[in-house]
Write a protein that binds this DNA or RNA. Structure first.
Length: 496
RNA sequence: GGUCCCAUCGUCUAGUGGCCUAGGACGUCGGCCUCUCACGCCGAAAACAGGGGUUCGAGUCCCCUUGGGACCGCCA
């Protein structure tokens, strides 16, 4: 049996978006599962819209996701000669012909067809031109395109789609489509097939938007004397309004980079994306890489389109809630060392990275990440909600102050007084601190929560967080006392 | 308009004729836990688009209607 070979052929006209990423993931999964190869081929034929920056962005996106490929990136433009040669061969063998119809004529016919509520099809005007007529027109310098000469056969042509099942179309419904432009440049339809033949692609997994091209391409395979690969057309990813997701109309929210920059764990995004249109048939939703490769089956890809349920403007669910949830899951369950590595860029960006976090303070750093990660959703949260762990320069959540500080005017005195008590507190551990705090609360005749929650607001700026006794212990005596003394008056000043 | 594809809770989905009083997950709501929040646990609301068949029996098969989507380029 021959080698399984798949490809991911993005056109570099923008960043990698989640729809493209999902296609890449499915191809990658299939290749990995069958010990095959994944080829990355950049379809840069559209020179006008292709950019270097976009190529870079796509490659970076794939690398970030952990989607690795075995060959490439190849560039479609490198094989321009082969595409032209294929067209020439088709022409020579009578499988294609030159068409001299002008754009104006075609447009007129198309419009007429539209008006008559008919299928828009080329009428074959130039199909039966005699060699003499062709020579005459060429001599006159008339421009021409090359059209594929669809065989006039009876019955239907079809193929077995791995996702959709049997797809058929009557021969009579086929038209003679253009394969080479009047400027001599072959079209995607042709290039794609030529490249796939050269790359010995055995399976094509792509979006359903390519479905209508498939039968034409099968015709080209046949005409070129090659065997057509297995096709699988996966459902599209739609937005809330059920429109196809695109970089142009949705902006950054659909870009893979957006998720990288907003603190997503790469594999969490892959895990989320793979579930959008595919299910293992069991209740399992969280997969390791190995588990996913093992579980993935092309036949279990759904037929119907799925909606990417993103939200905008919600601080917590700034994208699909399920994506956030899966990310949060990985955030609190992955080995803490891996989290630390993934989080480092965000600390650097926030200006609170300390090289000692990888040196003498590493243990402390990991401990803090481990203590706080449970209630965070993204890697960014360590440097925003969790900022007070790493810097004296942190913000106070107004809600925290209102609810836990300003309600009790006496805290203005109590908190500094508590600082004095804490100064003499030994040993400095959670157990002992709890006792001290509870005793103090009793001494001022308040519930412990009043004191504890106020401290959380002052020392961490937050309305929520880990056990305050743990916080005090890990943050250290000096920091806590300093903040109680210095931040308390400031907070009350802010009130006025 | 033509051709093609699709149709289960708000969203992602399980379901391949009887196991479905339709299961899971996220989200939502309520509760427990608790110094707060989160985690965890318990519970609730929430769907087979509609209509005809076929069958002893239909979410599952067939047809129609409706709804959604894709494509209809000398873009990829």
């Amino acid at each position: 049996m021959s080698e399984v070979r798949l490809r991911f052929p993005p056109s570099p006209t923008g960043y990698l978006h989640i729809g493209g990423a999902r296609t890449a993931i499915y191809n990658w999964l299939y290749a990995r599962k069958h010990n095959g190869k994944l080829i990355l081929r950049i379809e840069d034929t559209d020179a006008e819209r292709s950019t270097e920056e976009s190529i870079k962005g796509i490659i970076e996106g794939l690398e970030w996701l952990g989607i690795d490929w075995d060959e490439g990136p190849y560039f479609q433009t490198q094989y321009a000669d082969e595409h032209v040669e294929a067209a020439r061969k088709l022409l020579e063998t009578g499988k294609a012909y030159k068409c001299f119809c002008t754009k104006e004529e075609l447009d007129a016919k198309r419009e007429a067809a539209l008006k008559a509520k008919q299928d828009i099809k080329y009428d074959g005007t130039c199909r039966n031109l005699t060699p003499e007529q062709v020579a005459e027109k060429e001599a006159a310098g008339l421009p021409y395109v090359i059209r594929f000469k669809t065989p006039h056969r009876e019955g239907v042509i079809g193929y077995d789609d791995k996702v959709l099942g049997r797809i058929e179309k009557p021969w009579s419904a086929m038209e003679d489509f253009v394969i080479v432009r009047s400027n001599g440049k072959p079209l995607y339809l042709l290039c794609n097939v030529v490249d796939d033949i050269r790359d010995r692609i055995t399976h094509i997994i792509r979006g359903q938007d390519h479905m209508t091209n498939t039968i034409r391409q099968i015709l080209i395979y046949e005409a070129l004397g090659a065997r057509a690969p297995v096709f699988a057309h996966m459902p599209l990813t739609l937005d809330l309004k059920k429109a196809k997701i695109s970089k142009r109309s949705h902006g950054e929210i659909v870009a893979v980079q957006f998720y990288r920059d907003h603190g997503f764990i790469p594999w969490a995004l892959v895990n989320f994306l793979v579930l959008l249109g595919w299910s293992p048939g069991t209740d399992q939703e969280i997969f390791s890489k190995e588990e996913l490769i093992e579980a993935f089956e092309i036949e279990r890809i759904n037929k119907s389109n799925s909606i990417f349920n993103y939200r905008k403007g919600d601080p917590k669910f700034f994208t699909d809630p399920k994506a956030i949830n899966i990310n949060a899951h990985y955030l609190r369950t992955m080995p803490i060392e891996e989290i630390a590595e993934l989080a480092r860029p965000f600390f650097e960006k926030a200006g609170i990275w300390d090289p000692a976090f990888e040196g003498e303070r590493r243990e402390w750093f990991l401990k803090v990440l481990d203590m706080t990660r449970e209630r965070f959703h993204t890697l960014v949260d360590f440097t925003t909600e969790g900022r007070a762990w790493f810097s004296d320069d942190y913000e106070f959540d107004p809600k925290a102050l209102k609810k836990n500080v300003y309600k009790h005017e006496e805290l203005r005195e109590w908190l500094p007084a508590l600082a004095d008590i804490l100064e003499g507190t030994e040993p400095w551990n959670a157990e002992n601190l709890e006792q001290v705090l509870r005793d103090y609360a009793a001494s001022v005749d308040r519930k412990p929560g009043v004191i504890i929650n106020a401290m959380r607001a002052v020392i961490t700026g937050q309305i929520k967080g880990p056990s305050m006794f743990e916080v005090l212990e890990v943050l250290g005596k000096d920091v806590c006392i300093r903040r109680l003394r210095e931040k308390t008056p400031k907070i009350f000043e802010m009130k006025e």
